[in-house]
Simulated scan of single mutants.
Amino acid sequence: MIHISEFVAALMRQAVGAPGNETPIMSLFREWVKLQDEEVRSLQACETGNGDTPECLAAMNAVIAVEAKIASTPAVDLRDYALKIAAVTNFGLWAVPPIYDTQDLRNEVFRLVAKGA
């Protein structure tokens, strides 16, 4: 079974080449995907299956912490912005959570389009 981190890593290598060319959001996104995989493995290992064990909660909190960093990091270009939205919506599974300022996200995309990024 292929984990999402392997799939995304392959796409990112193709898109940006060497890791040294990554923007801050790309680096954070790579970390977020790795933590997502760890969270999934943790949830699968939980005896109760509902994610309320200390291990599961720690894995979830680690993902949320990186999501918050991604959300607060300015996007360099539209690719960064796409990665940001992918992270804060878990690849479109959810709407943008209310803890993130949606007006800031709107303003950011307008800024990027205006500068031709």
Rank of each mutant, 00 (worst) to 15 (best):
M1S: 15
I2G: 10
I2C: 04
H3P: 01
I4N: 10
E6A: 13
V8I: 15
A9L: 04
A9C: 06
R13G: 05
Q14C: 05
A15D: 04
A15F: 02
A18G: 05
T23D: 11
T23A: 07
P24K: 02
P24G: 09
M26D: 03
S27Y: 07
R30T: 13
W32R: 03
K34D: 09
Q36D: 12
Q36F: 15
Q36C: 07
D37K: 04
D37W: 04
R41M: 14
S42E: 10
Q44N: 13
Q44G: 09
A45Q: 12
A45T: 00
A45H: 05
C46M: 07
T48H: 15
T48Y: 09
N50S: 07
T53W: 03
P54E: 02
E55R: 12
E55V: 13
C56W: 07
C56Q: 10
M60K: 14
M60G: 13
M60D: 05
A62L: 07
A65V: 03
V66H: 02
E67S: 07
A68L: 04
S72N: 14
S72K: 04
P74M: 04
V76K: 10
V76H: 11
A82T: 06
A87E: 04
T89E: 02
F91D: 13
L93P: 05
P98L: 11
I99R: 13
T102C: 06
T102E: 15
Q103L: 15
D104V: 14
N107S: 13
L112S: 08
K115H: 02
G116F: 04
